[in-house]
Design a protein around this nucleic acid. Structure first.
Lengths: 203, 203
DNA sequence: TTACGAACCGGACCGAGGTCCGCTTAAATT
DNA sequence: AATTTAAGCGGACCTCGGTCCGGTTCGTAA
């Protein structure tokens, strides 16, 4: 019963030395291939070959294509999570929930705008689309903010609605296929947040 | 230069007799297989075999897997379109835009609830997800109603948001994976419409 | 009736994601 | 150093969506 040391630095622990080395080589090779020929054209076999590794190894380590792409996005993901969970306001704690919600969407839109290729290619299969870890974290955060802003509403559903607006496929469609500038999406987001969180039934 | 007669009854015209016959056989075979083993397990080769037809024929007729599944949904789709475009209120013309919007979502949620399997399996690839014909029709209708209800808003974006709430994958996740009753989704829709279309900045 | 050409057909073929299983090797134990 | 064992490895293999192209058939027009 071997006891393995913790992972060298950043991610999940307990990988054997050779496994960790291969993992790193695979990620590097994948990133390189994505740079060269785009994420959409990335094939698992090419990654394996570029890393001088068997195809099976890729799948054992990352599960499937989506898993590999997601791993490529992991760094940016973690950074973003840190920003809205413990960073400075208005994104992080310290501002009001509605203001944070606005900042959250704008920041996420910009990040998605940058990594669009990867984000699109990394979209999980329908069954996992809402249960994938990164999505759950973002969703949970939105729920949290909504509960503060509009406690009376069905925040689960509202959060799903808002998250839908920020989904990579929609951003891709609106910016690339419809030619909208990202600024319009940002304005749309702020307006949406304002409408959704309007709690008063005055008049 | 042969001139072909119009299609027998319902759909696109100008199919050669044998082609039309094969098309019908394929649809019937596909429907049968879906009934028997579920839409998710439907393979194109099985459909071709069940219809006693070559594989190439299936793809020539329907383009791809999504096209075939979409064709299976075509009847229900047309019926639904007729209902909100020229049917009785509150779904059809005659009621106010907000009321129609509410009825639209509720009706669509119910329809999706029924055909969930098929709707999921028929989801187009990311590039076409928003440009597929059925989606464009529904989206256009929502835009129309929104322009009447909230002319000052960015109705394109608002419509995308609302459509996102009604997307089959989300409905599947909420009802099947989270166990929410459809009624909750319907209530959520009505609330969402109310929030989004609230036009007054009183107080 | 015959001849013609466009539309159609079928199934061999390809590419890529994903699985499987016998072999190898890192690491803990003695 | 020798032993043990679970984790890791690789690449043959499978499935399935999608393409291709030589042969066939339908519909038309002479």
């Amino acid at each position: 019963m071997p006891l393995l040391a913790f992972g060298s630095a950043d991610d999940e622990p307990c990988l054997r030395a050779d496994a960790a080395r291969n993992r790193a080589r695979l990620l590097e090779a994948a990133a390189c291939l994505v740079r060269e020929q785009g994420a959409a054209n990335l094939t698992m076999e090419a990654v394996a070959a570029a890393a001088s590794v068997g195809k099976g190894t890729v799948f054992r380590r990352f599960g499937d294509r989506t898993g590999l792409l997601t791993a490529l996005l992991d760094h940016s993901e973690k950074k973003f999570q840190a920003a809205f969970m413990s960073g400075p306001p208005p994104l992080g704690p310290g501002a009001g929930p509605v203001e944070r919600l606005g900042a959250f969407g704008v920041a996420l839109l910009r990040r998605t705008g940058d990594e669009l290729e990867l984000q699109l290619a990394a979209e999980p299969h329908p069954e996992r689309r809402f249960s994938a870890a990164p999505r759950r974290v973002l969703h949970g955060h939105v729920v949290l903010l909504l509960r503060q802003a509009v406690p009376a509403a069905d925040c689960e559903l509202l959060a799903q609605t808002l998250m839908g607006y920020l989904s990579p496929v929609l951003v891709h469609h609106l910016t690339r296929q419809c030619g909208m500038p990202l600024e319009r999406l940002e304005a749309g987001w702020l307006d949406l947040v304002a409408r959704v969180t309007r709690t008063d039934f005055c008049c």
